Amino acid sequence: MTTLRTPGPTIGVVGGGQLGRMLAEAAAPLGVEVVVLDPTPDCPAAPVARDQIVAGFDDEAGIRELAARADVLTFEIELADQDVMDRVSEATETPVHPKPSTLETIHDKLVQKRELADAGIPVPPFRAVEDAADIRAAIDDYGAPVMLKARTGGYDGRGNVPVESKAEADEALESVAGPAMVESFVDFEREVSVIAVKGDDEIATFPIGENVHEEEILRETVVPARSSETVTERAHAVARDVLEVMNGRGVYGIELFETTAGEVLLNEIAPRPHNSGHWTIEGAQTSQFEQHVRAVLGWPLGSTALRSPTVMTNLLGDVDDERPAQLRGLDEILETPGANLHWYGKRQVRPLRKMGHVTLSAGDADASREDLLERARDLVAAVTFRA
């Protein structure tokens, strides 16, 4: 094993949003420095990172500069260009984790689903879409509704369109505006996720989280999920199988459906820390961000054990237009034992934009997750971006 030292190495991160910010926060206590690359000057990660390179996610010169200043490269956004990162890594001998080949798989949802299905990972029935007739055929085979998905570029639910009937097929395909795929609509009991970590010669999974979505945007994560022991064990097994398909070290957010029949089906994968894992900062022995730092460096992973039941609630823009961000009504959050505020440093608020999150930890292993969720909702309901 490589001898570890502190002060230690530097990680170059493509992307400087809230995930880059929280990566830098987690790296600092380990003596690890972070340099981020992002096209937005003074991006959210800039105040806590060592430095920012202002450049696009596909800017080869900028990524070469990042590689020259780092011992390893990683990314916090799937918009990172896998071909550019591959070329830079080869030219500079700076490793990239997860590997650019994993990004290539993730970028195209159809490619992703095909590779996972070929590996025996349980996924909903799916098919490629060339025209509206393919959607109508899917409705014949799968029943209505079906879920139409943009193969590339979708994020936070964008590019996902439920199609309720054959009559909606043409309009739905036009709204996606690009290569698409279609999946059967899953009759699920709940949406869950497993944050999984692939280290140098070890893997680890965090306790399963239960996710509440509205308008295709994650609103809340409850940990542990209110799932049976059988479903929980199956979810962890699927997550471990997914890691076998993924190439390179790091944290992977693995979104799953728990069906009404008690099956576990894979929804999507994010090859980076994930919104549904933010609860780990207070709720687990080691956060997903610290685990990502450890993993990409090839360091030993930390414990994924649960500290106590925890709820994470996103702070979303509750405005009707874009305006300077100023959050009001924080008193109750700051006064509540077990509650923690995380602000992402974004200067402008827009409707439903993720601006921060709040975690509420029970402190009691037997605490009711229903009560904890209700208390967290009350705390967040008191805050607003409106004047």
Score class of each variant (00 low, 15 high):
S303K: 07
F257A: 10
H107Q: 15
R50T: 11
P224F: 02
V194M: 07
L148Y: 10
D83C: 03
H274N: 01
L148A: 05
V35C: 09
E202P: 02
P95V: 04
V251E: 01
D83N: 12
P100E: 02
D364S: 05
L256K: 08
K109M: 04
A381C: 08
R151M: 10
A172K: 13
V251P: 02
Y344P: 08
V36E: 12
G338T: 14
T221N: 09
G363A: 03
S89C: 02
F289T: 09
A339C: 12
R386A: 12
A169W: 06
A235V: 11
D187Q: 15
V222D: 01
P9M: 09
V88Y: 05
V264N: 03
V296W: 04
H107S: 11
A367I: 03
N211V: 10
P207M: 04
G153Y: 03
D118I: 00
R377H: 14
R353I: 02
E191S: 05
R190E: 09
S175F: 04
A295E: 05
G317A: 12
I281V: 14
R347W: 05
T259F: 11
S361C: 14
T230N: 13
E370I: 14
V349R: 01
H357T: 02
A180G: 06
D156H: 01
G317Y: 05
G345S: 10
E60T: 06
I281W: 02
P44C: 08
L352P: 00
R127C: 04
E255S: 10
E202L: 05
G12A: 09
G159P: 03
R226I: 12
M1C: 11
A91W: 00
F57G: 02
G15K: 08
A132V: 11
G178Y: 14
A70L: 03
A150Q: 03
G356A: 13
S89T: 03
P351W: 06
A270K: 05
I281R: 13
E25I: 13
E322W: 09
I195C: 09
A235H: 07
E76K: 07
I139E: 00
P41N: 05
R69Y: 01
A128I: 02
V197E: 05
A261T: 15
A144N: 07
R294C: 06
A339E: 12
T384W: 07
Q326H: 15
P125C: 04
A55Y: 01
Y142I: 02
A325N: 04
E220K: 13
S193L: 02
G15L: 03
E282R: 13
I281T: 14
L330P: 00
M22G: 05
N211M: 12
L373Y: 11
S184H: 13
N275C: 06
D81P: 01
V182M: 07
M147A: 12
E104I: 02
G317V: 06
L66I: 01
A70T: 07
A177L: 10
P100C: 07
G298C: 03
A284W: 11
E210F: 10
S193E: 01
G120T: 09
E335Y: 07
Y252D: 04
L316Y: 01
M1T: 13
L30Q: 13
V194E: 01
S368G: 03
T384Y: 10
